[in-house]
């Protein structure tokens, strides 16, 4: 893809609003938010605690529904999908990376990576091969039969990243992926995510508090009380 071409956004957010009920009162978290995310973007969502970063990410990832507004991903307004259609959409289009990895403790590293493929139309052997390949991409081929409890935090997060990309999703969403890691492991994870972005062209949306993490991204969106503050990027 060339920079000269006028690009169409992969995520197109218009007038997005979300509020929560608290103590009988409705508290607006997001109100009238507009945002475009382009294919191959590596976007850092930043902002103070409680500014609605996770809320926005969850809406983009289709695990929560807005009160109003539209949210198009590749032209599909996911706010109009039924719960069941949305689940299917997530299985094909979203890869999740969580702060606390959220691996299944009773499954091995390889089985964890294979898990999302159960929802794809693949044979047993094909699933296994793809999971193995993906696990080796994150440098953990030799840990495939280890359980999460036998892996370090950084290794667990790498397994989680493998799980997120094994289905080749349209979007990778990460909520504070380095929030639970030491500097060295966090650096490794960020490096891995940069490679996914540059080498595989993955579109990544990452919530973070970490300045170093933000530097790894190509653009930063500041969220302030439910609205977009100043955006900063590297000019990509």
């Amino acid at each position: 893809m060339s920079a000269a071409e006028p690009r169409t956004p992969v995520v197109e957010i218009r007038g997005l609003a979300k509020s929560y009920q608290r103590g009988g009162q409705s508290v607006a978290v997001l109100s009238g938010l507009d945002l475009d995310i382009f294919p191959g973007d590596f976007l850092a969502l930043m902002g103070p605690s409680g500014s609605g970063k996770s809320t926005l990410l969850n809406l983009i990832a289709g695990i929560d529904k807005p009160d109003s507004g539209t949210l198009r991903v590749n032209g599909v307004d996911i706010t109009r999908l039924s719960q069941s259609a949305l689940a299917e959409w997530r299985a094909h289009h979203v890869g999740f990376i969580f702060q606390f990895y959220n691996l299944m403790p009773v499954l091995t590293a390889l089985e964890n990576v294979e898990l999302p493929l159960l929802l794809a139309d693949l044979g047993r052997r094909e699933r296994r091969e793809r999971a193995e390949l993906t696990l080796s991409m994150v440098g953990l081929a030799d840990r495939s039969s280890h359980y999460p409890s036998e892996l370090s935090g950084g290794q667990q997060q790498r397994v989680a990243i493998a799980r997120a990309i094994v289905t080749d999703p349209t979007l990778l969403v990460a909520d504070e992926p380095t929030g639970d890691l030491d500097r060295v492991s966090a650096g490794e994870i960020l490096h891995l995510m940069e490679r996914l972005n540059t080498e595989l062209g993955k579109t990544i949306i990452m919530v973070t508090h970490d300045q170093r993490a933000a530097e790894a991204a190509h653009s930063i969106v500041q969220l302030e009380k439910g609205a977009i503050g100043l955006g900063a990027g590297d000019g990509r």
Binding site: I63, S84, A87, R90, A91, M104, L119
Partner: peptide, 14 residues
Amino acid sequence: LPEYATLKALGFQP
């Protein structure tokens, strides 16, 4: 519950 929520996030139906 967190595990079940994770599975659902990954696209597993209820």
